[in-house]
Design a binder for these strands. Structure first.
Length: 289
DNA sequence: AACCGCAACAACCGCAAAGGG
DNA sequence: TCCCTTTGCGGTTGTTGCGGT
C-alpha cells in the first residue's frame, strides 16, 4: 500500500466543488492510466487537489456505472432493511445497491429515510424495521418517486434494470421511465443531477472534448454487466464498493441513440478495466469476459 | 423582487485499517 | 516489529436551489 515514490511536498490543495475541467483531467488520467496510487494522481493529472479528494470524486461521481437520480422503492426498502440489520455500514449497504455509492446511500438516509423511519417508529412504538419496510411497500406505486422529495431537484428516475437478488431482501420490481439522454445536457453541476448518470460523461466528453476525447463501448465492459445491465450482489460483494455499479444506463444510452457517440473504441480496454476496478479480473470466475 | 428556511447533495475531516519498507 | 503512508469509511459541514412568505 505504501507508495513512497509518490511522496511530495505539502501544498495548498484546492477545495470545494469540482469544475468540469478538473473532472475532465481526472477522467482523462484514470482512463489512460487506470487506478493506482491516489496520492500521485493529482500531480500526474495536473490537479491541485489532494489524492483523497480525487478518489472521492471518482468514486462518488465520475466512476462509470453510477446510477443517479432518485432511489426506487426497491432500493429504498433495501436501505431500510439493511440499515436495520447492519447499522450505519454505508459501504456494506451500498454493495447491495448497484450503481449507488456509500455517500449517496448515507445522504439519502440522513436526508430522508431516517426521518421516515423515525416517524414510523413514533407512530408505531414497537415497530421493527421490517414493519417499516412493509409499510413503505404498501404505498401506491404511482406515488413513489414523487413523494420522497419535497423538491423535485432530482427529476430523473434511474433505469433500474438491476435487482438485488438476495433472497433476504425485498424486491419491488418497479420500473421507472428514463429521462432524456444525458448527451443532450451540457455538463453542469446543477444539470448533472437530473439525468441518468452511469458514466454520463462518456458520450458528453466524446461529443465535446475534441481531439483529446475518448469514448467507450459497452463491449469493453464485463459481459455479465454490459449485456444485462446488472451487477449481482455477489459481484458487488466480491468487488466491494468499487464494483457496485450497474451499467444499465450505459446500455440505455446506446439504445437511445447515443451509440454513435459511444462507438469507436478508445483507451478503455480490458486492461484498464482491471486496473480501474482494483484488479478483480484475476480472482473471480464471474468475471471471465 | 427580496428574503428566509428547508431539503438535497457534494465534499471535507478525522479516524482506523491495511500494507510496504 | 515498528513506522509511515495510503486507502476506506462514517460523521459532519458547506453549498446550492427551490418554495413559501
Amino acid at each position: 500500500m505504501g507508495c513512497r515514490s509518490c511522496d511530495k511536498p505539502k501544498m495548498n490543495y484546492r477545495k470545494g466543488l469540482w469544475s468540469p475541467e478538473e473532472d475532465q483531467r481526472l477522467r482523462d488520467y484514470i482512463v489512460k492510466h487506470g487506478l493506482g496510487c491516489w496520492s500521485a494522481v493529482p500531480a500526474k493529472a495536473g490537479l491541485q487537489r489532494n489524492g483523497k479528494s480525487c478518489r472521492l470524486r471518482w468514486i462518488n461521481y465520475l466512476r462509470p456505472g453510477l446510477k443517479r437520480g432518485m432511489f426506487s422503492q426497491e432500493e429504498e426498502d433495501i436501505v431500510i432493511n439493511l440499515q436495520a440489520k447492519l447499522g450505519n455500514k454505508w459501504s456494506q449497504i451500498a454493495m447491495h445497491l448497484p450503481g449507488r455509492t456509500d455517500n449517496e446511500v448515507k445522504n439519502y438516509w440522513n436526508s430522508y429515510l431516517k426521518k421516515r423511519v423515525m416517524q414510523a417508529q413514533g407512530s408505531i412504538p414497537n415497530s421493527l424495521a421490517t414493519e417499516v419496510t412493509s409499510m413503505s411497500t404498501t404505498e401506491p406505486p404511482s406515488l413513489h418517486h414523487h413523494h420522497h422529495h419535497h423538491h423535485t431537484k432530482n427529476s430523473s428516475g434511474s433505469t433500474t434494470t438491476s435487482h438485488d437478488q438476495d433472497a433476504n431482501l425485498s424486491s419491488g420490481g418497479i420500473s421507472i421511465s428514463a429521462p432524456a439522454p444525458a448527451a443532450e445536457a451540457p455538463f453542469d453541476h446543477q444539470q448533472h443531477k437530473s439525468f441518468v448518470f452511469s458514466g454520463d460523461w462518456m458520450p458528453t466528453a466524446a461529443a465535446t472534448a475534441g481531439p483529446e476525447s475518448y469514448s467507450m463501448s459497452a463491449q469493453h465492459w464485463p459481459a455479465s454487466t454490459a449485456s444485462s445491465g446488472n451487477v449481482t450482489p455477489s459481484h458487488a460483494g466480491a468487488f466491494g464498493d468499487q464494483m457496485s455499479g450497474s451499467y444499465g444506463a450505459l446500455q440505455h444510452q446506446q439504445q437511445q441513440g447515443s451509440a454513435a457517440a459511444m462507438a469507436g473504441g478508445g483507451y478503455f480496454d480490458l486492461l484498464n478495466m482491471g486496473d480501474i476496478y482494483g484488479g478483480f479480473a484475476a480472482t473471480s470466475d464471474d468475471l471471465l469476459f
